[in-house]
Every structure is written in C-alpha cells, then in structure tokens.
Design a protein around this nucleic acid. Sequence first.
DNA 1: ATGCCGACAGGATGTCGA
Length: 260
Amino acid sequence: MKIATWNVNSVKARLDTVRAWLKVADPDVACFQEIKTQNETFPRDSFEDLGYNCTVHGQKSYNGVAILSKRPVEDVVRGLPGGDGDDHARYIEALIPSDNGVVRVASIYAPNGNPKGTEKFAYKLDWLERLRRHVETSLSTEENFVFMGDYNVIPTPDDAHYPENWVEDALFQPETRSAYRRIAHLGLTDAFRACHGAAYAYTFWDYQAGAWQKNNGIRIDHILLSPQATDRLTGCGIDKHVRGWDKPSDHVPVWCELAV
DNA sequence: ATGCCGACAGGATGTCGA
C-alpha cells in the first residue's frame, strides 16, 4: 500500500497540480494539509473522478486537512483529541482497509508557531504535547499506524540547507525539537530516515528569495510509523520534482510503501 | 533591517504562512 502526505497550500488553487500528481504517483491513500476550505466546498468530485473517497476536516481560509483513499474508510476521527475549545482544523484520522489487514492513517498539520516566545509559539508546543498524548494512547492498540503530515519541525541541523538561518525560527527552537522527540521517542520510526541515510533532503522551499533555485530547503513533512507499521515498511520517498512544476505548493509530497 | 512570494477575504490591503 502506497501512502502519501502533502501540504498542498490551498486545494482549490492547487487543483490541477494535485490531480496531475495523483495520476502519476497513484497512491492508495493521500493525506493533505492546508486545504484552506470548508467540507462543503472541498472539490471532492475532482478526486472521485480519479477513484478516491474523500474524508475532510475543513476550515475557511486557513488550515484544513483531508484523507483521500481508494478504499472506503472507517472509524474517522476529526480534530486532535483533547482540544478543549481549539477550533483549528489540523488533524484527521481514519482506518484504511486493505487486502491483508488494516492501516490507521492520520493527516497532521501542526501549528507554525512563529514568532517564538508568543502565544502562537505556546499554542504550537501545547498542540504537539496533545499530539504526543494521542500518539501514546494510539500505540497501546498495537495497530499499523501512520502519523504523517506537516509537523512544522526541523528535527536536526541535517534537515536544513542553512541551519544557521533558522536558529531564531519557531520550527527549529530547542523546545520545538524536544516536543517532536518526545513524540518520536514513544517508539515511532521516521520512515524517510529508516530508508535513506543521506542528510540534506528537503520537503519545503519558500516561495521567496529564490529558495527553490538555491535548494534552500528544510525537511518538515514527516512520516512517523508505529512499530507494527515499521515492520511492514518497504520504501519511502520525497517527490522533490513536483516543486518545479507550474503553480507549485511550497511543500512537496512524501510517501511510503507498506506491505499490507 | 526589510522585502522577497502566494493564498485568502473581500473588493483595499491586512493576515497568515515558514
């Protein structure tokens, strides 16, 4: 089963680009973030035409996440549990049936948190701690679980072309990286690092200042696997070339293959 | 130090992103 994640930066503005990628990449499951539209205005017909069922947790203008799946999904969770009064649409999860079992997949859009030291930064850290608690609970089920999406975390200096440019940024603060490690160290595996030893692979290049042309990127879109899913991991990749297409998102798709 | 880009809502330009 091929499972992918992509921060599309508006699903409506990106519709042609996203459809073009789906046709070529042909994932069984695709998690999107920053769809920037509500459930009612999600362009589901455009994806149903390509054979996908759409499960959406949308929001007007900002945020919004979705899961596209060739198989109908079950057991949908909309919103990150424990979010007392949190109205940001940043989390959706669903159970995906396959020929040889099931996989539970989460589409995650963690807060940006800039600038550091503000309420936004505190919200980011709180949100990551909530995610940690939910991951901890989820792992007790011992299922195949894939926690994928835009974590808005640069885990190590190896995940940035110019790490010195990010030392004041919320994505690279010690507190941010600790919060991410507390999640990963529950026993999750970074699918990309498990498959590829090389440093300096990126998933985001800013629109500004020629970042793409200079390969001034960061790796902030991650696929974290439960131990059971890790045992079934057969491959992982970053579709870097998509950043060079017309009307690109500033993020590119990341995918993994699981033997289920 | 700031703008650099891009999407959104709304109908000009401010907010947000990372």
